[in-house]
Amino acid sequence: MPICDPERSEAGAALTALILDLFRLSNRMLAAGDRLVAGLGLTSARWQVLGSIVAAERPQPVAWLARDMGANRQNVQRIVNDLAAEGLVDFQANPHHRRAQLVVLTARGRDAFAAAMRLQAPWINRLSEGLSVPDIGTTHAVVTALERKLDSDTKD
């Protein structure tokens, strides 16, 4: 149901409704991810950080991982510290910044991430049933456009 407000444009009201749906979806996705990887000793947040490390072209400091995730640096630091305590990540010296160590996966971290992705594949295939690839592409384009607009708003 669109949010009715005389000061919102029609698109603004539609976007407000979409954002509220995205908040609910995000919460449900995190809960589903937690259930999916619980048996591996992971949470959605830990899995997401591991995935960001894997996706990076080279080892990065926590601040860069947080930026790439669109997350708070302190939250990512806490999760990285937990992952390090469990032997899933390690720290390397950063030749460009003495205090901002680089985060790298350990063999155990690579194994945990690979196991999570093996669980994710059949789950995501079931979740995508009945959705069209063009609709998914359109949704992705809208979300990406919103991310760019939000990024440019924070730089102003």
Rank of each mutant, 00 (worst) to 15 (best):
D135L: 11
P61M: 00
D21L: 07
R28I: 14
T144D: 14
A17I: 06
D34T: 04
I19C: 11
G137K: 03
S152Q: 15
L30Y: 08
I79W: 02
S9I: 11
N94V: 02
L83Q: 05
R98Q: 04
T139L: 15
A63G: 01
T144E: 13
N81T: 12
N81R: 14
L50K: 00
E57C: 02
V103C: 10
L42Q: 02
V54K: 04
L30S: 13
A66F: 00
G12D: 08
A112I: 00
A31V: 13
G137Q: 12
L30P: 00
A114M: 03
F113G: 00
A56F: 05
R28E: 15
A55C: 04
L88G: 00
K149S: 07
M69Q: 10
V104R: 12
A55R: 12
V49F: 01
N94H: 10
S44N: 07
L105M: 15
F23Y: 12
T139K: 09
D82V: 12
R8L: 10
A11L: 12
G33H: 02
L42F: 05
R78C: 06
S132T: 13
T106K: 13
E147S: 06
K149F: 10
G87P: 03
F91L: 14
G41Y: 08
A17W: 13
G137E: 15
T138D: 15
V54L: 15
N72G: 06
A38Y: 04
L131Y: 11
L20N: 12
M29R: 10
S152T: 08
G130R: 10
I136T: 13
M69L: 15
D156T: 09
G109R: 02
T144Q: 14
L119K: 01
R67F: 07
L40W: 02
I53L: 10
W64N: 04
D153I: 10
N72I: 08
A14Y: 11
R67H: 09
A38I: 03
R24Q: 08
T106W: 05
E10C: 08
D153R: 15
R24I: 10
V133A: 14
L22E: 14
T154Y: 13
A141R: 14
L127D: 06
A112G: 01
V103E: 05
Q101L: 07
V80I: 15
A85Y: 07
S128W: 04
